[in-house]
Design a protein around this nucleic acid. Structure first.
Lengths: 166, 166
DNA sequence: CTGAGTAAGTTGAAAGTTCAACGAAGCGAG
DNA sequence: CTCGCTTCGTTGAACTTTCAACTTACTCAG
């Protein structure tokens, strides 16, 4: 709480930090809009489909979706409900745990993902990947990875699965 | 629309891209939460105060706020309304343009910003800046800057002020 | 076995954001 | 001047996210 100890950012760091905020805002808004316009799918919904598509049986527990996306469980409930209504996902009781619910991607969801993936990847390339050298992009990836790691470690409420817990 | 032309991301690029999304989500959520808990201020509100504090007369036109933050005008209207209700900002008619509205930071807003800045900067350092070398952080800043530049140039609807328009 | 504690998921209301429509004012060619 | 077009900012409804409360079921020490 001692105000005098705060280490302010220098001018260059400030510029970089603001570039990060604005760039991130612009990038996610753009990718979201492109996906909505072309396929009526939000970025969050798209990413849920991606995760389901990579899972055995194209099925995931609600809690796993929440954790992988770092969304609240409540948010996942609402989003999955909308996607279920749209026929992209089906809910069914989990085999092992009677409290559990599994979300399974439908054929319609799969077909939509197959189309939407083109739009998404092209956007990510055009608006992000192709603007950097491989090395720059890797550096950025490493940095954001350590940010994620740090925040999952530091914050008690995040992380459910920490492989490297002390 | 030709599906076969899509250049997919390789494994490393995919990892970097996902690290970016998760890291960004975690980072902004954390900074937002820290600010809310300590000062009852959202990250967006904080950034509006920062911009006002840097303007002559601690005043900005609504449209300028929207543009600098890349928020919709509607969003700025709503956010400023809430902040006005909280006594952090005052609205007054713009001098030059009778359509215009100027948002001015109140003394209370200033005082809150002075406190909140410590929390914010400490968070940005601890969760981001200090996790990277100066060089890495600069690289990230440059990359995100070119992303912002690209999107402002490419997208007709963004950019209002483009100094380097062709 | 049983009761305390915890985890999974849902719910509905509050808070925040987006969207489309609007009124008011400035701009500019004819 | 004046008609049409654009810009400024607001509005209210629709939509999304958050938040706190809640139900159900699993866990496990005693």
């Amino acid at each position: 709480m001692n105000a005098s100890e705060t280490r302010w950012l220098n001018a260059e760091q400030q510029r970089a930090w603001r570039a990060f905020i604005i760039g991130t805002t612009l990038l996610t808004d753009t990718l979201d809009r492109e996906l909505r316009q072309a396929h009526g799918l939000s970025l969050a919904e798209y990413e849920i489909l991606v995760r389901l598509s990579e899972s055995t049986g194209r099925t995931l527990r609600m809690a796993q979706i929440a954790e992988e996306m770092q969304h609240s469980r409540s948010r996942v409930t609402h989003t999955v409900s909308r996607m279920e209504k749209a026929g992209l996902i089906e809910r069914c009781a989990a085999a092992a745990d009677r409290r559990g619910v599994e979300a399974r991607m439908t054929e319609k969801g799969w077909d939509l993902l197959v189309e939407a993936a083109h739009t998404h990847v092209r956007g990510v390339r055009e608006h992000f990947v192709d603007l950097a050298s491989d090395e720059e992009f890797t550096t950025m990836g490493r940095l954001m990875n350590s940010v994620a790691d740090h925040l999952l470690t530091v914050n008690p409420s995040f992380a459910d699965i920490r492989s490297d817990a002390d």
